[in-house]
Computed example of a mutant assay.
Amino acid sequence: MTTPEGKGTLEGKVAFVTGAGQGVGQGVAFALAREGASIAVTGRTEAKLVDTVDRIRAIGGTAEPILCDIADTARISAAIETTVEVFGGVDILVNNASLNPLGPLLGLTSELMAKAYASGPIAALHAMQAVYPIMKERGGGNIVNMVSSAAVRWDTSGYGGYASVKEALRSLTRTAASEWGPDNIRVNAVAPHALSPGLQWWTENRPEEAAEFVKSIPLRRIGDCEDDIGRAVAWIVSDGARYLTGATVPLDGGQARWS
């Protein structure tokens, strides 16, 4: 995607992407950078962040690694402040990183669920609150929250905790879109299927289950982190989607049935 002048559609924008050291977050960071955005590459593992930044710079993009543990709200605030110091502001927030509690309900402990909510909707809400005044002052912005189709699976067994965390984030997404629309801040959710490191491990270690999973996807493949997920996110936060807000965009090859 380029403008008539040959520039990227996100030229001059600054994006703060959590969990950008690998998987979906990294794919989104690559796609946004290709469209001209400067990227605050955030996460907990410095080596992974540096790798992502080096790869963005290799394609002519601008990026900085910023350590941030999203389970600690003070660190989220500090990371956003650093981004403003380095790049001058924040125009795009992508809440991607989270702890995903999987397993049957009887096996979900209070401690695990508390950590999942802290790193999921609570962390995302804090980041949203932190960027709101920055985006408002800049005349608007875009927030994308990574959610899941787990709550609308044909069988949610083993996915209840994970689904509850992601549904909480979907609710916050819709509310933020409603409350912040007058400030020209668009807020959307994306529910992806992508070949992240976790899904890659599952595919390699449980090939029969993975094969059946792929068969349930009408497009018969799992999405690529950059080409299928990242590029779609780049469109969602561009002016090409300027009338889209409060939506959940399923990037799952048509697998889930969203009502």
Results as ranks from 00 to 15, higher is better:
residue 134 I to E: 07
residue 165 V to N: 08
residue 41 V to L: 12
residue 54 D to M: 05
residue 167 E to R: 15
residue 19 G to Y: 14
residue 63 A to S: 02
residue 81 E to F: 03
residue 131 V to Q: 00
residue 241 A to V: 09
residue 223 G to W: 06
residue 234 A to Y: 06
residue 137 E to G: 00
residue 139 G to S: 02
residue 115 K to E: 13
residue 9 T to A: 05
residue 234 A to M: 00
residue 111 E to T: 14
residue 130 A to R: 11
residue 97 A to F: 01
residue 203 T to V: 13
residue 169 L to N: 15
residue 12 G to R: 15
residue 147 V to S: 14
residue 177 A to L: 13
residue 1 M to S: 13
residue 154 W to A: 15
residue 65 P to V: 06
residue 211 A to L: 10
residue 140 G to V: 09
residue 96 N to V: 00
residue 233 V to Y: 00
residue 246 G to I: 08
residue 204 E to N: 10
residue 191 A to H: 07
residue 88 G to Q: 01
residue 94 V to H: 05
residue 132 Y to V: 03
residue 76 I to T: 13
residue 149 S to W: 09
residue 18 T to D: 12
residue 209 E to W: 11
residue 90 V to I: 14
residue 100 N to Y: 09
residue 217 I to D: 02
residue 177 A to V: 15
residue 231 R to C: 05
residue 246 G to H: 11
residue 21 G to P: 12
residue 106 L to W: 07
residue 190 V to F: 02
residue 71 A to C: 05
residue 28 V to H: 04
residue 64 E to N: 02
residue 81 E to K: 01
residue 183 D to V: 00
residue 80 I to D: 13
residue 117 Y to K: 04
residue 93 L to N: 04
residue 243 Y to L: 09
residue 149 S to M: 13
residue 149 S to D: 15
residue 94 V to W: 07
residue 125 L to G: 07
residue 191 A to M: 10
residue 242 R to M: 03
residue 204 E to R: 02
residue 58 A to W: 02
residue 143 I to M: 13
residue 119 S to Q: 07
residue 143 I to W: 06
residue 153 R to D: 09
residue 192 P to H: 06
residue 178 S to F: 08
residue 1 M to W: 02
residue 20 A to C: 10
residue 31 A to N: 06
residue 240 G to T: 03
residue 86 V to Y: 09
residue 243 Y to S: 11
residue 136 K to V: 01
residue 150 A to I: 09
residue 249 V to C: 00
residue 187 V to Y: 13
residue 111 E to R: 15
residue 92 I to E: 03
residue 72 D to I: 11
residue 104 P to R: 03
residue 247 A to G: 08
residue 73 T to S: 11
residue 75 R to M: 14
residue 232 A to Q: 10
residue 129 Q to G: 04
residue 31 A to W: 08
residue 20 A to Y: 12
residue 244 L to G: 06
residue 116 A to S: 15
residue 23 G to I: 06
residue 230 G to M: 03
residue 247 A to Q: 12
residue 250 P to V: 06
residue 196 S to N: 06
residue 29 A to W: 01
residue 40 A to W: 09
residue 177 A to C: 14
residue 9 T to I: 09
residue 76 I to G: 14
residue 95 N to A: 11
residue 174 R to P: 06
residue 223 G to D: 12
residue 22 Q to E: 04
residue 6 G to S: 12
residue 88 G to R: 01
residue 22 Q to Y: 03
residue 2 T to A: 11
residue 12 G to H: 14
residue 241 A to D: 04
residue 49 L to M: 12
residue 123 A to L: 02
residue 138 R to V: 02
residue 22 Q to W: 01
residue 227 D to R: 00
residue 13 K to N: 07
residue 141 G to T: 04
residue 88 G to F: 01
residue 186 R to N: 06
residue 1 M to Y: 13
residue 251 L to T: 08
residue 62 T to S: 04
residue 121 P to Y: 07
residue 44 R to W: 13
residue 212 E to G: 14
residue 160 G to H: 02
